[in-house]
Amino acid sequence: MQFAYLRRVAAGGAVAALTFVGAGIATATPAYAADSKVSVVHGIPDTPVDVYVNGEKTLENFEPGDVAGPLDLPEGQYDIALTKPGEPIGQAILTADDAEVPGGANISIAAHLDADGEPTITPFVNDTAKVDAGKARLIVRHTAAAPAVDVRAGGSPVFEGLTNPNEAKGDVDAGSVSADVVLAGTDTVVIGPADLNLAEGTATIVYAIGSAEAENLAVVAQTIEGLHSAPSGVPSGTGGQADTGLGTWWYALAGTGILLLVAGGARAAVVRSGRR
């Protein structure tokens, strides 16, 4: 697996203002206001919730570790509220007002713990640009009450110094790789190791969730399909035996034929008129 050209994305996440974390938000927004695909990721341990969007119950008894969606939402501002299952929206345990959903984007809204262990909501913009043929995209998001971490694949670090609530990503060779998460700069494994099956033409988004202190760190994964590209060509012949073009000999033959016809015809005409 090649990690040589991984791009480290250090995006700042201002949770209170709910600015979207992630790259490509400007390019992902077309001029017209197409709907956005919005998924919801639950990363707060031991806390099933009901999810309200603009005051309307959208998800019921949403369990930790689950991923909902994607919903098609028009561009605009949304109020999001999480309640304990069955409780009224007035007693919400977590709210995010005026969350900006841009047009034509693919977004994941994560309910998770911040670095200090307080529940929070962070929206991420998902990079759904096409990957090259043979590649898969790996996106790792730090959404756990834990210090900075490194993500290792096959024993060597691929993303280093990742902090809550940020992401790191890269396009890698499709296939399976054993990955784990260690405290930044150490060999202290806090999550994993686990086998990551990165299918070609997909983006696999892995969220580190839970709390280091409570010793319930875990991962939630989300997959986005359909990002594949075709190979650049199909080279399948070097012999020339199946050539369907007309070779130089053909042009020589046809040219000679025309010359003979013209010369012979002219000659015959000259002879005939000479006799008259």
Binding site: G257, L260, A263, G264, G265
Partner: peptide, 14 residues
């Protein structure tokens, strides 16, 4: 000879 040339030319073209 001219006729032969015409015939050969026609044959080549054919």
């Amino acid at each position: 000879g001219a006729l032969a040339a015409v015939a050969a030319g026609a044959a080549a073209l054919a």
